[in-house]
Design a protein around this nucleic acid. Structure first.
Lengths: 150, 150
DNA sequence: TATTGTTATACTCTATAACTATA
DNA sequence: TATAGTTATAGAGTATAACAATA
C-alpha cells in the first residue's frame, strides 16, 4: 500500500535524505581516511587551517562549532602526526597559533583525493552535468549554513 | 589566495558537502523533534515500521544498520510513548513483532511535518524546480545506498 | 579580574558480551 | 544446540567544569 497522502512523507524530504546520506557517506569516508590515522573531525580542522589563519584555538573552535577542549585533543593528535605546528603568539603569549606543516598540506591533499574517489563511486550513475548541478546545489545550501564551500 | 589547483579541494567534493550538511541539518532536525521526546534514531525506527512489516527486531536491526540491543532500547522508549506495540509471534514465541500504534502514526506525521518545515527553511533561495531536482538527485544517491526513499 | 589553553570529569551514544526464554 | 530478545558492561566521542599561565 504505502499510500501517498496530500503531503510528502519523511523519506521524501530533503532533511531526511541529507541526514541519512550524510551519515552513510560520512562513515564510508571515515573508513577511507583511517589508514592515515585521521577521523572526519581532524579533516575538518585541517580544512579550516588550509583556508584561513586563525588567531587562536578558540576562534577555531567557534568556526568548527565544537568545544575548545576538543580542539586541544584534535590538535594534539595532528601535532603528533606532524601535520600542524603550535606557535605561541608573540604579542599575546597565551595564544597558540596553529599552522599547517608541509606534511599537513600533504595529508589534506590525500584526504581530498579520497573524497574525490568516493564522489566518483557514488555518482557513477549521473552525467557530468547532473553531478555538477548537484554539487552546486549543495554548495548553495552549505554556504547558507555557514559551511566552507571552497 | 586559496589557489585552485588541478583538482578540487575537499570543500568542492560531494562527500564533504553531504557530510557537513548532513550533520548540521540533522542537528537542527533533532532540535525540532525534541519536544516530542524523540531523537533521529527513533524517527528512523518509526519510519521503517511505517513502510514495511518486520518479522523480528533483528530484521529491523539489520535494516537500520544498528546492533539488536539498540533496537531494544529504541523500542522501549517508543513503547513508553505509546507509539509502538510489541506482540509475541504466535508461531515462534521468541519473536517480538513491532507495530505502529495510532499514536505512532501521528508522531510519524508530526515528524514529517517538522522535516517539511525545515525543508522550506533551507531551500528558501531555490525555485520549486530547483528544489525538486535536488530532492530527486539525492533520492537517486539514497536508493543506491540502500536507504528508504518513499 | 578576565581570558587562553589545558586537564579532569561526566555524560551520551552505541557496540560487544553475557544471560534468559524458547525452539 | 541454536536463536530472539534482553540486560550488563565497556568504549568512543564530546561537552562542562576546574585549573594554570598570561594579560
Amino acid at each position: 500500500m504505502n499510500e501517498v497522502k496530500g503531503s510528502a512523507g519523511l523519506p521524501q524530504t530533503l532533511v531526511f535524505r541529507l541526514g541519512t546520506l550524510g551519515a552513510v557517506i560520512g562513515d564510508r569516508f571515515a573508513e577511507r581516511i583511517e589508514p592515515y590515522d585521521l577521523k572526519p573531525k581532524h579533516v575538518g580542522l585541517l580544512t579550516a587551517l588550509g583556508q584561513d589563519s586563525f588567531a587562536s584555538q578558540q576562534d577555531l573552535a567557534a568556526r568548527l562549532g565544537v568545544a575548545p577542549s576538543l580542539v586541544v585533543s584534535l590538535a594534539d593528535h595532528l601535532e603528533s602526526l606532524g601535520a600542524v605546528q603550535r606557535v605561541r603568539g608573540p604579542d599575546d603569549r597565551r595564544r597558540q597559533v596553529l599552522t599547517l606543516t608541509e606534511r599537513g598540506h600533504q595529508l589534506l591533499g590525500d584526504c581530498a583525493a579520497e573524497a574525490r574517489a568516493l564522489d566518483t563511486e557514488i555518482t557513477a550513475h549521473l552525467s557530468a552535468d547532473q553531478r555538477d548541478a548537484l554539487l552546486e546545489a549543495l554548495g548553495g545550501l552549505a554556504a547558507r549554513a555557514g559551511l566552507p564551500t571552497n
